[in-house]
Simulated scan of single mutants.
Amino acid sequence: MKAKLKNIYSIIILMVTSFSAFAQDGNAGINEATNQVKSYFSTGTNLMYAIGAIVGLVGAIKVYKKWNDGEHDTGKVASSWFGSCIFLVVVATVLKSFFGV
């Protein structure tokens, strides 16, 4: 009976040690993924600024066309286009300042 208990304890100790070894590799993987995301973060925020600028230009052209055509919903279209442009820029700025990258 003592031999069986000794074997069970040995198996449990072996399993705990192997789990801790896997956990250390998992931590290293998580740290590596974090570093990779941080390296792409600046590029991603610059991309959001560029998309905001393009949306702003397209919106300005559409609003100008509606204004010249004399349509009555020009103010609503202007606020929606420029609101989306401002939203993209604000989100990029807040994320950049929040994560401190």
Rank of each mutant, 00 (worst) to 15 (best):
V63A: 02
L88T: 00
N35P: 08
S84A: 11
G75N: 12
A28V: 11
V63D: 07
T17K: 01
W81Q: 03
S80T: 15
L47A: 04
T74H: 01
G56P: 05
F99G: 03
W81G: 02
W81H: 08
F22V: 00
L88Y: 00
S20T: 04
K66F: 12
I61H: 00
V77P: 10
I86D: 10
I11E: 04
G44M: 08
A23D: 11
Q24I: 15
S79A: 15
A60L: 10
W81D: 08
V91P: 06
N31S: 14
V37I: 10
I30P: 10
S18L: 15
I61Q: 04
W67V: 07
I86A: 03
M15Y: 09
M15D: 06
K66G: 01
V90D: 08
Q24F: 15
A60Y: 06
G44R: 07
L47W: 00
V58N: 01
A50Y: 04
G59S: 00
V63I: 01
S42C: 03
Y9C: 06
N27M: 13
C85L: 04
A3C: 08
Q24H: 13
V91A: 05
V16M: 05
F19I: 11
A60G: 10
I11A: 07
A53E: 12
N68T: 11
K4H: 14
V63H: 05
S18F: 14
A78S: 09
N31C: 05
I13P: 01
D25A: 13
G52I: 05
G29I: 09
T45R: 02
Q36I: 10
T74M: 11
M15V: 06
D25L: 13
S80F: 15
S18K: 04
K6W: 01
V63R: 07
F19W: 08
V89M: 11
L14G: 01
L57Y: 01
A60C: 12
